[in-house]
Amino acid sequence: MGEFTLRQLEYFVAVLEHGSLTEAAKQSNISQAGASMAIAQLEKSLGMDLLIRTRSKKVAPTAAGQELGTRARRILAEAAELPAALNDGRDQMRGRVAIGCMTAISPRIIPQLLGRISRRWPDIRLEFVEGPAEELQHAVADGTLDLALVYSLQAVADVDLLVLTESRPHFMLAATHPLAARDSLRFADLAQEDVILLDVPPSAERVISMFRAAGVEPRVRWRSVVAETIRGIVASGQACSVTHVWPGMVPNYLGANIRLVPITDETPPNRLVAAVAPGVRRPRRVEEVIATAKDLASAAGPGDG
C-alpha cells in the first residue's frame, strides 16, 4: 500500500459530503483539477476505486469508498484534536524527566533535586545519568535527555544554556592544613603542594590552565574519576584540589574535615547551567525541574534536600 495524506482524506470526505468534485473543490478552496488529482492519487495509493462517476457529474462512493469515508472522518477528527491533547499533556505534572549531570556536580545537587521533586510532584518520574559534560550535552541535542546540568565553561555549540547560578573555583584543603584558615589564597600559595584532580574531561585540563595562567606549574600527584576519592585524599591531608562552589551547595557536603578557600587570582567566569535543546517547547514538568534546580543551586528556596 502506498502513502496518502490527511489533505487527500479531507478532499475525499468533502466529495462525499457535497456529492460532487466541483462543489467539494469550491468548499475546499482548490481547483477542480486539484481535487480530482488528489482523489486519483488516493485511489492509486490504496489500489482501489473509491468513487462512481455519473453522467450528471455527481459522484457516489463505492463500497470501499463508504468504508474509507467512515474511517477518514474518525482519523480527521482525531488529528484535529491532537494539538490540544498534546498541549494538555505538556501541562500535566506527571511523566518522565531525564537529566544528565556532570560527575563533579551530581552529588551536590541530585539528591536534593530528587527529594524536592518527589515531595512536590510525586507523579514526576525523575531519572538521571552521570558523565562528561560534552557527552551529556550531545544527548540533550539528540533528544535522549531533557536537560543536562553542566558548567558553562564546558558548553558545546548545539545546546542552549539556562543559567542557574554563578560558580567560582575554590581550593579544597584538609581542615588541618596550615592554609585552611585563610580567608583567600592564590595559586602561588599552593605551588609546592601536591594536587589531585578530577580526571573527567575537560575538568583537569581547566584547572591546570588556571594554575598556569597564574604563572604556576601545578604538582599534579594524582587524578581520579571519583569525587569521593578526591575528597577522601584531601581530607587525609595528602593533597589539595580545586573545585567549583555555588551559593546553594549543601554546607556539609564536603564533611567536617575539609575546608573550601576562595581563590583571589583572576579565573574565567563560570556558571552552573541547564543545557537544553534549542528551539524546543519544553513540557511544564521539565520547566519545573529546571526551576527547582535553580532554586537549589542559588539557595533561593528552602533547603529541604
Rank of each mutant, 00 (worst) to 15 (best):
V163E: 13
V163L: 06
T165W: 02
E166P: 08
E166G: 15
R168S: 12
P169M: 11
H170F: 12
H170W: 09
L173E: 06
L173H: 07
A174P: 05
A174G: 07
A175M: 07
T176P: 06
P178R: 04
L179I: 07
A180F: 00
A181T: 14
R182N: 12
D183A: 15
D183C: 06
L185E: 09
L185F: 12
R186F: 10
R186M: 14
F187I: 13
F187W: 04
D189H: 14
D189T: 10
A191G: 11
A191H: 06
Q192E: 15
Q192L: 14
V195D: 01
V195L: 15
V195Q: 13
I196R: 08
I196A: 10
L197F: 10
L198E: 10
D199P: 11
D199K: 06
V200L: 14
P201K: 13
P202M: 07
P202I: 05
A204V: 11
E205C: 02
R206V: 15
R206D: 12
V207K: 00
V207Q: 09
V207L: 01
V207P: 02
S209Y: 02
S209G: 12
S209Q: 13
M210I: 08
M210R: 10
F211G: 03
A213W: 08
A213E: 13
A214M: 05
A214Y: 07
A214S: 11
A214D: 05
P218L: 11
R221D: 05
R221G: 07
W222E: 14
R223H: 14
R223M: 14
S224N: 12
S224A: 07
V225W: 04
V225M: 13
V225R: 06
V226C: 11
V226L: 13
E228L: 11
T229R: 05
T229H: 15
I230D: 02
R231T: 10
G232N: 11
G232S: 13
I233A: 13
V234S: 07
A235P: 14
G237C: 10
G237F: 04
G237W: 06
Q238V: 12
V242P: 07
V242Y: 05
V242D: 04
V245Y: 06
V245H: 04
W246D: 08
P247M: 03
V250I: 11
P251Q: 06
Y253N: 12
L254Q: 00
G255D: 11
N257G: 10
N257R: 05
N257F: 02
I258D: 00
R259N: 12
L260I: 07
V261T: 09
P262A: 15
I263Y: 05
T264P: 04
T264Y: 08
E266T: 14
T267A: 15
P268E: 14
P268G: 13
P268L: 11
P269E: 13
R271T: 03
V273R: 00
A274M: 01
A275K: 01
V276I: 10
V276S: 00
V276L: 02
P278H: 07
P278T: 02
P278I: 04
P278S: 04
R281D: 09
P283H: 01
R284E: 13
E287D: 08
E288S: 08
V289R: 00
V289G: 00
V289Q: 00
I290A: 00
I290G: 01
A291M: 05
T292A: 03
A293M: 01
K294V: 01
K294I: 10
D295A: 14
A297L: 06
A297D: 01
S298N: 09
S298Q: 09
A299P: 08
A300W: 02
A300G: 10
G303L: 04
G303K: 09
G303F: 00
